Amino acid sequence: MKSTSAKYGTVAITIHWLSALLILAQLGSGFWAASIIDGAAKEEILKFHAALGIVILVLTIARLLWWKFADRKPDPVAGGPAWQMLAAKAVHVLFYIVILGMVASGIGLMVVSGAGAILSGETDAMLPDFGNYAPRIPHGMGARLMVGLFVFHAGAAIYHHLVKKDGLLARMWYGAS
């Protein structure tokens, strides 16, 4: 369950890949909802989007608590330049900042726009134009930043796997390295 000095444990691996899949679904549903004009369809997508945001928040908090109190990360892969280790740490920290910022701006958007009451069924009003509310700006910027971080992170993993062949990607998968 726990990580070793050379490999991530099953808990860390499961949280990592589940988070990745859910964040991709979240990004897809968010961009989809932003492009839809039909209010009823948009409302259904946003119900999914809001619920998924809460699941991602819980998973992110679980991950932070897991690293703080229950496990330690494996040692860095030997032979990598210092700038790559610094870039990897920066990307991981940015992931946490963006995830938490996206949750905060999403909740803020639901509250100030009144959409939270609509999505929860408390009122049957129409969804507002989210562009009229300040939290929409950081929420949209965060989504685009998340896409960039995802591409950078996945690209680095693929580079390590295909070019460097240093076993970095295998450390974040189930089974023996």
Rank of each mutant, 00 (worst) to 15 (best):
T60I: 00
G80H: 15
A40V: 15
V112C: 14
L64K: 08
A41L: 13
L57P: 02
A62D: 04
H153I: 01
G131C: 08
S35M: 12
I61H: 01
A41P: 08
K164L: 07
A176D: 13
A156F: 02
T14C: 13
I137V: 15
L52Q: 03
K2V: 10
M85H: 14
W17R: 14
S35L: 07
D75K: 09
R72F: 04
K73W: 07
A41W: 12
L119E: 06
G108T: 12
H49D: 02
L149K: 05
F152L: 14
G148V: 00
V58E: 01
W67M: 11
A6K: 15
G131P: 03
Y174G: 07
Q84Y: 12
I15T: 03
A143C: 09
K2M: 09
I99R: 07
M110P: 06
T14R: 10
M85T: 14
L100E: 13
K47Y: 04
V58Y: 02
I97A: 14
S29I: 03
G114E: 03
G148Y: 00
Y159P: 06
A62N: 05
I118R: 09
R171A: 05
L169P: 04
D71N: 00
I45N: 07
K165D: 00
G167A: 03
A12F: 03
A40D: 11
L46Y: 10
G101P: 02
T10P: 07
A104G: 14
F130A: 15
G155W: 01
Y96N: 05
V91F: 02
